[in-house]
Amino acid sequence: MAAILTTVGFDADDTLWHNERFFHLTQQRFADLLADHADKDHLMDRLLAAERKNIGHYGYGIKGFVLSMIETAIEVTESRVPASVIRQLIEAGQDMLAHPIELLPHAREAVEAVADTHRVVLITKGDLLDQERKLAQSGLGDLFDAVEIVSEKSAPVYTQIFARHGSGIEQAMMVGNSMRSDVVPLVNAGGWGVYVPHGLEWEIEKADPPSNSDRFHELGDLGDLADLVASLR
Rank of each mutant, 00 (worst) to 15 (best):
R119P: 02
D127P: 00
T124C: 10
L143A: 10
E132W: 05
D145L: 05
V120D: 04
A113R: 15
D130N: 15
D145V: 04
E102V: 12
T124Q: 02
K134V: 00
K125I: 00
Q131T: 05
K125Y: 05
G126C: 10
A110E: 00
L128Y: 03
D142V: 04
D130C: 10
A110V: 01
A136G: 11
G139D: 03
E148L: 01
D127G: 14
A107I: 05
E102I: 07
G141I: 00
D130I: 01
E109G: 10
Q137Y: 07
Q137I: 02
L128M: 15
E109L: 08
K134P: 00
I123P: 02
I123L: 09
V150A: 15
D130F: 11
L140N: 06
E112V: 13
H106A: 11
E132Y: 07
I149R: 00
I123Y: 03
A115M: 13
L122F: 09
T117W: 03
R108P: 01
R133I: 09
E148H: 03
A146R: 02
A110M: 06
L140K: 06
V114M: 09
D130Q: 14
E152L: 05
H118L: 07
K125L: 07
E112H: 05
L128H: 08
A136V: 08
K134R: 15
K134G: 07
R108C: 03
A110P: 03
D142P: 06
E152V: 01
D116P: 08
T124M: 08
D145E: 11
R133T: 12
R108E: 12
L128V: 09
D142Y: 07
L128R: 12
L103S: 10
L140F: 08
E152P: 02
V121R: 01
K134F: 03
S154D: 08
V150H: 13
A113S: 15
H118Q: 13
R108W: 09
A107N: 04
K153L: 09
P105N: 04
L129E: 15
E112T: 06
D142T: 08
I149K: 00
V150T: 14
H106E: 06
R119C: 13
S138F: 09
G139A: 11
S138N: 12
S154T: 10
A113K: 14
V120Y: 07
Q131R: 11
E148W: 00
G141T: 07
H106R: 12
I123C: 12
E112W: 06
V121H: 02
E112I: 09
A146I: 06
D142Q: 11
K134D: 05
I123A: 12
G126L: 01
G141S: 13
V111E: 12
T117V: 10
L135F: 12
D127S: 11
E112G: 11
E102A: 14
V150L: 15
G139T: 04
G139P: 06
D142N: 10
